[in-house]
């Protein structure tokens, strides 16, 4: 899964997947979320997913607003709760492909509890976690993934909190699929998302995105191209035992690739057995 599959992009036209009447979109110039959105729709296209059967559930923040541009059944829910909404939706409607678009604040802070329990439960849906190290929508506050010593509006003297590694968290909570890619490598990101969506069970695809306008500016990280190129220097193609958890107080290197890919009974199927047993017992 770590290799970039060579796929003809000709057949994929993002305009087929977007609500074009909503353009122009709200994202800032240089924001990585648009690249992630493109990779996601590209993955859906290659998987042959029908838009009518696609449900996108998102939370609050910049990540949460991206879902509205997708021409599918889109649900923009509340702060940190998209995984919980999606859990109800998927259980009620197992026929839908359910993809949650969330951010580092949404999934790792206010919605952290839902994230770890979604991993544990293993219901068949995908979390695309857009990690841009910051609360962009609210003006640039520190997030659980803000690198050490970075400046944000709530860490005016530099961040002293250690960061969360979303993939390690997912793995520790029992996720059956967890991987990470950067927006720098869109085809690889698309392939990661394809693998995540195809995975039977709960899958986490973390996307290293960039917030040029707020986080980049505050930390003098250059323009969007420079920010994306930074990913190149920080990314590690594969995870090795030495770089498991990004250490606090130094710029974060981030491993990329698929870290967890295993099979465990899927929650929806297990609940089918609960129904069967309940009916047999009541006979």
């Amino acid at each position: 899964m770590n290799e970039i599959t060579v796929t003809s992009a000709d057949a994929f036209d993002i305009r087929d997947w977007l609500r074009l009447d909503l353009m122009p979109h709200f994202m800032c110039p240089g924001c990585g979320h648009g690249i992630a959105l493109r990779a996601l729709l590209w993955a859906c296209h290659e998987l042959g997913i029908k838009k009518d059967k696609l449900a996108i559930v998102s939370g609050i923040g910049c990540s949460g607003r991206t879902g509205a541009y997708i021409d599918a059944n889109t649900f923009h829910t509340t702060h940190g709760r998209p995984l919980a909404f999606a859990t109800g939706l998927k259980l009620a409607r197992p026929d839908l492909t359910v993809i949650v678009i969330s951010g580092d604040g949404d999934s790792l802070a206010i919605g952290g509890n839902h994230m770890i329990h979604a991993c544990r439960r293993n219901l068949d849906m995908t979390l695309m976690l857009l990690n841009n190290e910051v609360y962009g929508m609210t003006g640039g506050q520190v997030s659980p993934t803000t690198s050490a010593e970075r400046f944000t509006t709530t860490t005016p003297a530099g961040n002293v909190e250690p960061v969360f590694d979303a993939c390690k968290l997912a793995e520790g909570a029992g996720a059956t699929f967890a991987g990470r890619e950067a927006t720098l490598q869109t085809p690889a990101l698309k392939d990661l998302l394809k693998a995540a969506i195809s995975h039977k069970g709960f899958s986490v695809a973390e996307v290293i995105s960039d917030c040029t306008e707020i986080f980049g500016r505050k930390n003098a990280m250059g323009n969007s191209a420079e920010m994306v190129l930074r990913q190149k220097h920080a990314m590690i193609p594969e995870r090795s035992p030495d770089d498991r958890v990004p250490e606090p107080f130094k710029p974060n290197p981030f491993p990329t690739g698929v870290f967890v890919d295993q099979q465990r009974p899927e929650y929806g199927e297990l609940y089918d057995q609960v129904r069967k047993r309940a009916r047999e017992r009541s006979k």
């Binding site: 649900f75 919980a84 859990t87 939706l89 259980l91 009620a92």
Partner: peptide, 24 residues
């Protein structure tokens, strides 16, 4: 039908609304 004990009260209300958004 489906019963689920969620991880917290916030999540149980969210899942309830999520299921209804699915038409159930």
């Amino acid at each position: 039908g489906t019963f689920i004990q969620m991880e917290d009260e916030l999540g149980s209300m969210a899942a309830t609304v999520g299921a209804s958004l699915g038409g159930v």
